[in-house]
Nucleic acid binder design. Structure first.
Lengths: 207, 207
DNA sequence: TAGATTGTTAATCGATTAACAATC
DNA sequence: TAGATTGTTAATCGATTAACAATC
């Protein structure tokens, strides 16, 4: 076990390890060596062993890592060994799609609140939720002690809505708006901008 | 100018610089120093200057970088100074949302083909496109010489559909399915898995 | 010119990898 | 036991940053 500060990039890889272990478990694998896992992820076995060693000793010399046990450990490390309730702000096309997406619940993220500012949507049922008026945002977030928000509003509203999420007590924001949010440093943000992702690939395409 | 191989991580930052320059241009800024840009991005000015120096000399000592010129240069570097045609595979909720998203066209990515395998959707008009039967995928991709695909199918179909995109000549895939695709090394892949992004944040939340 | 900022070098910092003793 | 694989150290590799001469 290594007690130094854990590099952010190591944390970023853990969900990816977990996803692959999930797949392997479904394929019936019960033990996996760092070598086999590394081949699947196309990285070096040393990196996997080093990454895991920041958190403990999860393997057995001679055989490898018990798949289910390692998954459990990763879930504990990532703080996803319980249900997180999530609020969605912005119920346009993308908000609709995310509310209907079962992957969140399947992985322990339960969407429990949905907000919009448009009269046509407020009060409507979308998937399992009734869309609420954005004016109630902070109140409702506080009342349910929501710590995670998903932001699916147009770019021009995103910064203000992000700030409102934060003042409602939210500590982590999954941002689908194509802007860079400016928030206090203790607020976690992950941005999902498909245009930026496309632009990261075109560089490598033949001109 | 620096002629060594350019680190991938530098390429990854360029779309982000471009997005911020866009914002600044809209705010009326015509010249920006590495210091001002760095404050906006919350990185060091040295990193910006070093990153840009891989590609040329775009600034003026004493003043900084002309915003529009730098944007032009970045667009050329990223290979986005022309329209890219894009195909979408999978017209479920997310596919619908993306077809209706104007951000792609606004940034030079034109969705020109949409495919699904479900009779209820095939032949239907969604946004500006008529959804085609997936059986025609490779033919249509070849016919239109499409190089970029967006994958919005369920996880269990994603690997096969990715392979079909590749055999249709696609070289870059924006993958929304929550699996790791295994494709030839010359194929560009960017994955957008909201669950993984959430899991990268929960680590930092109070338990 | 004086002040400001670039482009670039060299130093620093941090992450990845190879190698191997420990051990299942 | 013999073979295999971990956890960890140390070496390597690569990226970031500070500093400054060049120059607008």
């Amino acid at each position: 076990m290594n007690n130094r500060n854990i590099p952010k990039i190591v944390i970023d890889r853990l969900p990816w390890y977990l996803q692959t272990l999930n797949q392997m478990a479904r394929e019936g694998l019960s033990i996996v060596s760092s070598l086999v896992l590394a081949e699947r992820l196309d990285i070096t076995p040393a990196q996997i062993r080093k990454d895991l060693s920041y958190f403990g000793e999860f393997g057995k010399q001679g055989s490898g890592y018990p798949v289910f046990h390692l998954m459990d450990e990763l879930q504990t490390i990532l703080n996803i060994n319980h249900i997180w309730q999530v609020a969605i702000v912005g119920v346009g096309g993308l908000g609709h799609a995310l509310l209907n997406y079962h992957g969140f619940a399947r992985h322990g993220f339960e969407t429990v609140l949905a907000f919009d500012n448009h009269p046509n949507v407020i009060g409507k049922q979308v998937a399992h939720l009734v869309v609420q008026d954005i004016t109630h945002l902070e109140d409702q977030l506080r009342k349910k002690a929501i710590k995670i928000g998903i932001l699916t509003v147009p770019a021009r509203q995103a910064q203000i809505m992000a700030e409102r999420l934060v003042s409602g007590g939210v500590l982590a924001i999954l941002n689908y708006a194509p802007i860079t949010l400016h928030l206090p440093p203790d607020i976690q943000v992950q941005s999902m901008d498909p245009v930026q992702s496309l632009q990261r690939m075109t560089y490598f395409l033949p001109r």
